[in-house]
């Protein structure tokens, strides 16, 4: 080892520590405020924009109509925001229902075991092997379409992922040394469920719920687009998009592009919300 001509010491990270948690919280805050903005604007915007105004038909985006107007002269920004609000509401209800179904079925599967577990696993596998859209359409049809149809079909098709996650987590916890030890320390099953299992399951549930929103909203838009979802009188995003199809070829690009883009941004915000919350709640990544 020669002590001459040694280079300068290493500093693996030359930059100061980045505060990853601050970035994560910013991402969460930004997503939340964007979603709040949609809801508030959707309620507050002058409903006159929804009225037919034949003088202002088919206008490209201007300052007065940032999203342009449609073939009846309706303001597309107002319609889009209204549509997104409806989609948001449907999405929240459907995914909350779906997450609760997932939680209950996952818990039942893991704790009851035996034939209950076999049947539930079989049903989950069946749902997962069926194309999502087919199941959605069938269930929406059975429920007679409309708002109930949409909510029921989305709620009944999206629980499988979370149910599997909860089931796996509970099964793993049940065999954990500290859970078995708790029983030998004389703790009751209810005490163990409350103190050992719940702290692990709640974060899974919350994140699972948030990550369900984007799917629920997109699928709601999807089946409405096909025509078995919400009724055409409601300016749901799916309706707006399906109507715009007829006018796309005539060069009215803004009818589809801007509402579509808004839907995408909203879905991505939910996704960002879920992913960032997951990173924060997981002890493995929470120190980054």
């Amino acid at each position: 080892m020669s002590d001459m001509s040694l280079p300068a010491p290493v500093h693996r990270l030359a930059t100061p520590f980045s505060n990853r948690r601050r970035q994560t919280l910013w991402a969460i805050g930004l997503s939340l405020s964007f979603l709040a903005l949609i809801v508030v604007l959707g309620q507050r915007l002058d409903p006159a924009g929804l009225d037919t105004n034949l003088q202002a038909r088919n206008q490209a985006p201007t300052w007065q109509h940032p999203f342009g107007t449609d073939w009846l002269g309706r303001d597309m920004l107002t319609r889009t925001l209204r549509g997104l609000t409806i989609s948001l509401a449907v999405g929240v209800i459907a995914s909350a229902l779906s997450a609760c179904i997932g939680l209950l079925i996952g818990l039942a599967s893991a704790t009851l075991g035996g034939w209950v577990d076999t049947v539930i696993t079989w049903v989950i596998d069946m749902f997962l092997s069926l194309p999502h859209l087919v199941a959605l359409i069938l269930i929406a049809f059975v429920f007679g379409g409309g708002l109930t149809g949409v909510i029921a079909s989305v709620a009944l098709t999206h629980w499988t992922g979370l149910a599997r996650l909860i089931r796996a987590e509970v099964l793993q916890l049940k065999t954990a040394n500290y859970v078995q030890l708790s029983e030998r320390l004389g703790r009751s099953r209810i005490w163990i469920a409350r103190h050992h299992l719940l702290p692990h399951l709640i974060p899974q549930f919350v994140v699972g719920l948030l990550l369900l929103f984007p799917h629920a909203i997109l699928h709601e838009a999807g089946i409405t687009f096909i025509g078995i979802g919400l009724s055409p009188h409601q300016p749901a995003v799916g309706i707006i998009l399906s109507e715009s199809m007829r006018h796309l070829s005539t060069g009215y690009w803004w009818l589809a592009a801007l509402p579509g883009l808004s839907l995408l941004v909203m879905v991505k915000s939910f996704d960002a919300l879920g992913e960032n919350l997951r990173a924060l709640l997981d002890p493995k990544t929470s120190q980054e």
Partner: peptide, 21 residues
């Protein structure tokens, strides 16, 4: 292979040459 929130100071030499990332 230290985790991302680690920072090192000082030197590690391998075969008399500084060990950089």
């Amino acid at each position: 292979i230290l985790p991302a929130n680690a920072r090192t100071a000082g030197e590690i030499y391998f075969k008399e040459t500084l060990l950089t990332p």
